[in-house]
Amino acid sequence: MAKILLNMITQRSIEEGIAMEIGKPSKEYFEACSLVEMNEDDIKALGITPNTNVKVTSESGEVIVKAVVARQTCYRGLCHIRQGVWANQVVPPRTQSTGEPQYSGFPVYIEPAPFERIKSALECVQGAVGLWKEGNE
């Protein structure tokens, strides 16, 4: 098992769009967005099999998501988390004075975290502002 440095982007996907309209607290949204899409060889380089949980760490935060092989292929070195709650745990808020955060193209470390739990959307957001309690779902 290893830790690798990748270039991360976050974009819209149709799965995310459908799930978002069903509701952000829904199971569909959780399943659509709490994963990181990578090149197959980068997953191998991590020493894990696809569908293993990983920890993604950026300059501004960290998040646990599931590593999957990107169907919309990422070249080696590039990874993608669908836009939304989990991606935004690590997206740097710096805007280059344009108003737009660094959603595309920022360095992240990815390391295997097979035994870590993926937080729910609500836990991620409420947790960040001190409102999270068990049973809030």
């Binding site: 952000k24 939304g84 997206v91």
Partner: peptide, 16 residues
């Protein structure tokens, strides 16, 4: 809209 989900989380923390 949903700034809670779509802003980078540090921005949400400041707003809160």
């Amino acid at each position: 809209t949903d700034a809670g989900a779509h802003f980078p989380i540090p921005a949400v923390q400041h707003l809160k």
